[in-house]
Design a protein around this nucleic acid. Structure first.
Lengths: 227, 227
DNA sequence: CAAGTGTCTTTCGTCTACAGTCTACGGTGC
DNA sequence: GCACCGTAGACTGTAGACGAAAGACACTTG
């Protein structure tokens, strides 16, 4: 116990910059997801290093982490290239995402408390407000937070980590699509919350599966506009 | 097209050593999975570098990859420590593994050809021979190859990659257990092959789910010998 | 004797330098 | 004019060195 009598929360904790590689990682991921770095582009270490004002080493470490998570392809003795998504890969990712999210919904229904359900409803209400206000960016962000909250309620850290990675990549693949089906999405969220509140695992699983399958359909509708 | 007329496969491709970090990664992973490096142990970069005869840099990169895959915990400004498995985490991993393997079985049942089924039967036969000969190491290795083959037949690279990581960690967690339930395991494999050969997705999913759930039960039986 | 403090060692995080390898372009011979 | 070879440039892979933070220990002081 401290004897200084300082209030616990008053100390700003003097935020330290944290490892440089992590900040480089986040910066690069931001550049990739925002399409500032397009698929197939050659990422030169020294170039990025100079641009970010750091040495090559942190850049290398960030690139390798991005590689292990599927954002860039690291060809030996040649360098890093932003990963080029293929149709088949997008489809596989959506399959896995459906699987993980559905299981999360089931676990959430099995173990969520009243506080968790209330949090979901709060997020859902905010999302509906954002959609009503045509604030697309906020709606997308809240959508991500909603799914993350379901994951949290599932109480499975391993599952959550895998789902987070897969989700992020899925969102990257079909960013343009997400902006179109905002409204219907939140209706489905409402139904899902009801199922979770009722502790109905079967229904929660089914609803989440249908929900993510709608996403898949939207993606294919965009990919093959002629069909 | 090459005009030399050399047969394509005849050239030994003059295998180059490949990136040093990958070999360091594999070496460390081997040391961890074989318990040569116990959970909680502090891994000093310079020490490992000297021991492996390389510089610190490849060791750092290997450690970071191991960290991202959950094998070591990388505490900032302090170093790398071999991850210490907890009961809760093992349970979560098994849950995810069940999920991924069951889906793989379903996809395999949906899309496997006769050649794939034949390959599975071949592996199964080898596994049964290994069990009959009390060759535990071979049986364990064949078990891994069997599951990997099912994954391959599922035709989903993303799913396969996730499952490979999860599987490897699960095997690490309960290595002692795997050695005990060898025989029953292959009986269940036979049933699974039959379901896949019949293109019965429902049954394949159920069988694989039960199969991995048996693994979970074995684990808990070991963890709580009194129950 | 106990609490606090200063120093000291260990180890990580980052930067700079060098060697190996791949790619691209220009020159030369046919 | 075309194909092949040689050379130059650029980039990655690896090694070594320096600065900084965290932990341990002994010393001082009330």
């Amino acid at each position: 116990m401290l004897s200084t009598g300082l209030p616990q929360g008053a100390v700003p904790k003097l935020e330290r910059p944290g490892p440089l590689r992590d900040r480089v990682y986040e910066a690069l991921l931001e550049l990739i997801t925002t399409r500032a770095l397009g698929p197939g582009q050659h990422l030169v270490e020294s170039e990025l290093a100079g641009h970010l004002g750091v040495s090559r080493q942190p850049v290398r470490e960030a690139l390798q982490r991005l590689n292990s998570e599927g954002w860039v392809d690291l060809r030996p003795a040649q360098g890093a290239f932003v990963h080029e998504p293929t149709e088949a890969e997008a489809d596989q990712l959506l399959t896995v995402r459906t699987l993980l999210e559905a299981e999360a919904a089931r676990l959430a229904a099995a173990g969520a408390g009243d506080a968790g359900v209330a949090a979901l409803e709060e997020l859902c209400a905010e999302g509906e407000r954002a959609v009503a206000a045509d604030d697309v960016d906020a709606a997308v962000a809240l959508n991500a937070r909603f799914h993350a909250k379901v994951m949290e309620l599932a109480g499975n850290a391993v599952l959550a980590e895998l789902a987070a990675q897969v989700d992020r990549r899925v969102r990257w693949y079909y960013t343009p699509v997400a902006r179109q089906r905002g409204r219907q999405s939140w209706v489905e969220h409402r139904e899902l919350i009801a199922a979770i509140a009722d502790r109905d695992e079967q229904r929660a699983t089914r609803l989440m599966r249908e929900h993510t399958e709608h996403t898949r359909r939207s993606y294919h509708a965009r990919a093959e506009p002629g069909s």
